[in-house]
Amino acid sequence: MSAGVELWSTSQLLTAAAHAVSNSWNRQLLSIGITHGGVITLRALQSGGPMTQADLARHMRVKNQTIGRTLHLFELQGWVLRAPAKDDKRLIFVRITNAGAAILDRAEELEKTLASEDLLPEDLRATLINIIQAQPPQPPSRIRGTNPFH
């Protein structure tokens, strides 16, 4: 533990703790070929169904370019499919594949075994959920296209 950590601001402590937990998870998840961020992306697609790349980026609170690079790699792995909207080829829809669902299942099983989960008291989890849910949602995209996966 760093000397003087007691003097850090709450935001510094949250950021450092998030990075430490994410790095621990990544070390474990890389053994099956995915990162923690990748698990979050696939989980969002599995729970939200097909959506535009822009809507996925907003949902995950990242930039469209960031999610685009991730989706490109996932497409190469066969974990997602991307296709232009039926009525507007500029819009790209994305959905999880069976292979993506399978790697997500493996990752979620692995996550259950991670020791760092045991270090997180349940009241901390509830507090973090409250902090995140208190943030205003990002507005949905005004541009709509017809989902090519339906």
Rank of each mutant, 00 (worst) to 15 (best):
Q28H: 06
S31P: 01
A99V: 06
A85S: 15
S11N: 12
G37V: 01
E122A: 14
K89H: 13
E111H: 06
R82C: 08
R58F: 03
M1V: 12
A16F: 08
V39H: 02
L29A: 13
A57W: 02
E109T: 12
L91Q: 08
Q135R: 10
K112M: 08
Q138H: 10
T52E: 03
L114N: 04
V5S: 14
V21L: 12
L128G: 05
V5G: 07
T52S: 15
R106A: 08
G48C: 08
I143A: 13
I32H: 14
L76Q: 15
A101G: 14
L30Y: 09
Q138K: 11
I67N: 01
L128H: 06
E109R: 13
A101Y: 07
N64S: 15
L42C: 07
N147R: 05
D105F: 14
A18K: 10
R69W: 02
R106T: 03
Q133V: 12
R90L: 06
V5Y: 11
V62D: 02
G78M: 03
S11C: 07
L76T: 13
N23S: 15
L13H: 10
R125A: 09
P121K: 02
E75C: 04
M60S: 04
N130L: 02
W79S: 01
K112F: 00
V5K: 14
N64F: 09
G38D: 04
A99K: 12
E111G: 03
